[in-house]
């Protein structure tokens, strides 16, 4: 009843407070989820036992990694193609089309490769993880695992998290190579740039630092996507409808988090390395 009499500014403040509280609760939830998964996994290792079976890890790496190569490769190829073509015509006006290889290479290795791969994997694999774990949760399978004395975090979450953690950099590299290759085709076809010359220009402009930045970012993206997807899956409530809602929410949260984290990373990075 208090709400009915509240003034609009109070309602806005209430709304903001409510959203902030939910946001902080979710951030805290995912953070402790990651911590507990690590803890449960290391406790198992300390006992001298493997935390999960290798087959489980490889099944997830195959699904998340190998099976994602065509999608990541194709999307990055077309984006590299478009980027080289559109920037090429602009740069040609100033006679600087030789900057295309460096531009595409730096843009993809530092930024677009990891970011695009992150977004694609959040949609493709994150959704699959949430739906799979969510269904297990609804069918009491997760509780049954817990009831047997098996830690569900190290058994179900750790192999998925580790698979995405290690595969994101690999897939980012696939994305980079596909985009650079596509831009080399454009450079050859439209700007008469020979492949060896193109490669020389890429090597001249690309720094090791750019590559390391992209790789480090990818590791973190992989961890975040897997953590958010598994967290959403294991906290599903409300049957089949709940699985659907959580899957949508998982993809949206993972994509937003990846972009948000990328921005934060770039702010910190450019503060320390401005060039």
């Amino acid at each position: 009843m208090a709400n009915a009499r509240a003034q609009p500014p109070v309602l806005v403040a209430q709304g903001i407070g409510h959203l902030t509280r939910n946001f902080l609760r979710e951030v805290g939830g995912v953070f402790w989820f990651i911590v507990n998964t690590f803890q449960e996994t290391f406790e198992r290792i300390q006992k001298g036992r493997v935390p999960f079976r290798a087959t489980s890890f490889f099944r997830h790496t195959e699904r998340a990694g190998v099976d994602s190569v065509p999608l990541v490769g194709l999307v990055s190829f077309f984006l590299g193609l478009t980027m080289a073509l559109l920037t090429g015509y602009q740069l040609q006006r100033f006679g600087t089309e030789r900057l295309i290889p460096g531009l595409v290479a730096i843009a993809f290795t530092r930024e677009l490769g990891p970011l695009l791969t992150g977004i694609m994997l959040a949609a493709r694999i994150g959704a699959a993880f949430t739906a799979e774990l969510g269904t297990m949760q609804v069918n009491e399978e997760v509780e049954a695992i817990e009831a047997m004395g098996i830690g569900p975090l190290r058994f179900l979450v750790a192999p998925r998290m580790l698979a995405l953690f290690f595969l994101m950099p690999c897939l980012s590299t696939v994305s980079n190579i596909a985009a650079i290759f596509a831009s080399s085709l454009v450079c050859k076809a439209y700007f008469s740039m020979a492949f060896p010359y193109f490669l020389d220009l890429v090597k001249d402009s690309l720094l090791i630092r750019d590559i390391i930045t992209g790789i480090l970012k990818s590791f973190m993206f992989g961890l975040l996507i897997a953590a958010i997807a598994c967290y959403r899956g294991l906290t599903v409530k409300g049957g089949a409808a709940g699985v659907g809602t959580s899957t949508t929410s998982s993809v949206v949260t993972a994509i937003t988090t990846v972009i948000g984290f990328d921005t934060l990373y770039n702010i910190v990075y450019t503060t320390f390395y401005p060039t």
């Binding site: 069918n139 009491e140 399978e141 009831a147 047997m148």
Partner: peptide
């Protein structure tokens, strides 16, 4: 523990 709907891993 035996669950009402068995809870076998599908």
């Amino acid at each position: 523990m035996v669950y009402q709907y068995s809870a076998l891993l599908s």
